[in-house]
Simulated scan of single mutants.
Amino acid sequence: MHRYKDFKFWQMSRSFCKDIYLLTSKFPEDEKYGLVSQLRRASVSISSNIAEGCSRTSNKDFSRFLVIALGSCYEVETQLLLSYDLGFISKTDLENYTETLMSVVKMMSKFNSTLS
């Protein structure tokens, strides 16, 4: 078993999730059950799947959860792009959030490649 709190990519994904909550609090009220909900759930899923994978006893199982977390990262990226397209976030926000997200993806992918 691994200690998820020690992973930099888990720490960053947790902080990123908080930032997504703050960002989406400024979205239009009619997006409460649309993009707001989707972005929040997908961002929560990243750190949650990392943590759940750490509880698994085999590297194969852990790797499966990291792949799910990676999928959530790309889901969030797509939703951020849609949020930009709809004028809910600025280009600067899009670039900053995407940069952070891609840092998490790179770290997690690199680590996942060591589990095989």
Rank of each mutant, 00 (worst) to 15 (best):
M1V: 15
F88S: 00
E75N: 04
F9P: 00
L81A: 11
R41W: 03
N112F: 06
K5P: 10
D19C: 13
Y21S: 07
L101F: 00
S48I: 07
F9S: 00
L101W: 00
M12P: 10
K32H: 09
C73E: 02
R40P: 02
K110V: 14
D6H: 13
D19Y: 01
D30Y: 04
Y97Q: 02
S47W: 01
N96R: 07
F9C: 02
V44M: 07
I20N: 02
L80E: 03
E31N: 07
T98C: 14
L81H: 11
E31H: 02
T78Y: 03
E77K: 10
Q11Y: 09
S45M: 07
I68M: 06
S13I: 01
D61N: 12
N112L: 10
T57K: 15
I46Q: 01
R41A: 02
F88W: 04
D93A: 11
T98P: 08
K91N: 12
G53N: 05
S103D: 08
T24Q: 01
G71W: 01
L80T: 01
F9N: 00
V105C: 12
V76Q: 01
D6P: 09
I89A: 05
E99V: 13
G34S: 09
W10Y: 10
C17Y: 12
C73V: 06
I50Q: 00
G87T: 04
E77M: 15
G71H: 06
Y84M: 12
S47P: 11
K26V: 10
L82A: 06
R56A: 11
S72Q: 04
L70I: 15
L82P: 03
S43F: 03
V44W: 03
M1F: 14
C17E: 13
S109A: 14
S90P: 03
N49V: 07
M108L: 07
N59R: 15
K18P: 11
G53V: 02
F9M: 03
R56D: 04
Q38V: 00
L115T: 05
I20D: 03
L80G: 00
F16V: 04
Y97I: 04
S15Y: 15
S45E: 04
D6N: 12
S90L: 05
M1E: 14
S45I: 04
F65N: 10
V104K: 01
V36I: 10
D61E: 10
K32I: 09
I89L: 08
D85S: 12
I68V: 09
D6T: 09
M12Q: 11
M102H: 08
S55A: 14
S25F: 12
A42I: 04
W10M: 01
L115D: 03
L115H: 05
L94D: 08
L94N: 11
T57D: 12
I68L: 09
F65K: 09
K110R: 14
S25D: 08
S45G: 10
M1T: 13
G71F: 02
S43R: 01
